[in-house]
Amino acid sequence: MSDAIRRMKDLPSTHLLGTGTAMCAGCGGLITLHEIYDVLGTKTVFVNAAGCMTLLAVYPFTPFRGSWLYTAMASAPAGAQGVRDALDILIKKGRLAPEEDLTAVALTGDGAAYGMGLSATSAAIDRNLDFLYLCYDNEGYGNTGQQYSPATPHAAQTATSRGSRGYPGYKKDLFTIWAAHRPAYVATVIGAEPLDLAKKIEKAKALKGPRLILALAPCPPGWEFDPQDSIEIGRLAVKTGVWPLKEYVDGKVVHTHVPHPRLPVEKYLEKQGRFRHLFEPTRNEALLKEIQTAVDQYWAEIEHG
């Protein structure tokens, strides 16, 4: 990947990840993984935590041309640590040629990344582990039927927040939690914006140390929408300002795209069954306003400092 990615036509035209996996049609997580893998390449070992993507590699098949190790729900960063340390030792002792080296990539859902894997993650960043953490955030425990997770947005209905007000909590700010650890790199991405994504993966790839790629991953069954709308919903997440595209590098947060003018969040919410209760049987003006205000406040702080 010697030439820098600047335009859409610079994006890789060959796809590295095999097809025919067990993911749902329109899976935003899988779209993101495809795009990321194309840029990262096969000199990688994906260290996976329990979640939907665990079913990518089902014996005796794997879509990965590089390597893969499944661990458990809370310990992917620890697995990445072991692989990284072992490769370093082997190279240092001359038992492994440097060109045989691999990038350790933790691949987990939001349940692991925002929740039970956070302790292992924090510890890995403390140790300045040279790894990439890829979180596909479908805003719930997708694999087990979309129960809410710490990444579930306010008011979303999930299998465990079925009431008329949806999930009472607020989405945890994992980007800021990571940034507070002062790692090498943190970025939000979305599969629907492949150029922004590819540029960030390229940048992350060139850095060393702990790096997070946090991808919003529209999930047709979990968010209740038609699989063909997956990309459109992703774009709306950006255009409405719900999913800011940004990066943290060298101690500073930079927004890589500032949506202007911003569409009303309703445009994003109304396309998803998990928010239908905000519109039917009657509009819940108070909750809609609360959600819009939170987004407006976020961008007001960004735009006016």
Partner: peptide
Amino acid sequence: RFRASKPVSQAVAVLGGGP
């Protein structure tokens, strides 16, 4: 091992009680 030239998927899922 994990090596660039010898890619391998380890500890993968199985479906069903047979495997």
